[in-house]
């Protein structure tokens, strides 16, 4: 599956992946504008789980049999058979959060301001995911190994 793979042994828990995820999903793509002047500020789609000293960024796994897609009541979540990615059509999302409860990894984030969900879209339009590019310790690796 195309996905961001984490190397927990070198994850330093800096949460910079969350910061840059917000920037990547902002309108301006500028860190200062995104955080200080854009409202509403986008929610980060990656969440760093902590049980110190262990830290683990959790991204959408783009599962081959995604529970979130099964749970989706509106058809907003679907799996693209060509790319292997789980996609989210925000226009159809009704904010029921069924997928949040269904995801076994806790990788679906609630965007309460917009009453929608947010999950890792692998920065589709930007080539390599921003969190992977910005990770200071190379703890995140983009694996684009999907074959349909």
């Amino acid at each position: 599956m195309p996905r961001v793979v984490v190397k927990p042994e070198v994850c330093i828990g800096c949460h910079l992946c969350e910061v840059w995820c917000v920037v990547a999903h902002s309108r301006s793509k500028n860190i200062l504008k995104a955080f200080l002047y854009e409202t509403p500020r986008p929610v980060p789609r990656v969440v760093v789980e902590e049980n110190l000293p262990f830290t683990l960024p959790v991204h959408c796994r783009h599962c081959s049999e995604p529970s979130c897609v099964e749970a989706c009541i509106s058809g907003a979540l679907y799996r693209d058979p060509l790319t292997g990615r789980v996609e989210h059509d925000a226009g159809r999302c009704v904010g029921c959060y069924s997928c949040v409860m269904a995801c076994p990894y806790g990788a679906v984030v609630m965007d309460e301001v917009n009453r929608k969900i947010a999950r890792c879209d692998l920065c589709k339009e930007m080539g390599e995911p921003t969190c992977v590019k910005q990770c200071p310790n190379r703890a995140l690796v983009y694996q684009d190994s999907f074959t349909s």
């Binding site: 949460h15 969350e18 910061v19 955080f35």
Partner: peptide
């Protein structure tokens, strides 16, 4: 303060 985004990276590092 005009640049701090309160991301807490400094606190964690």
């Amino acid at each position: 303060s005009d640049r701090c985004i309160k991301c807490r990276v400094c606190e964690r590092q």
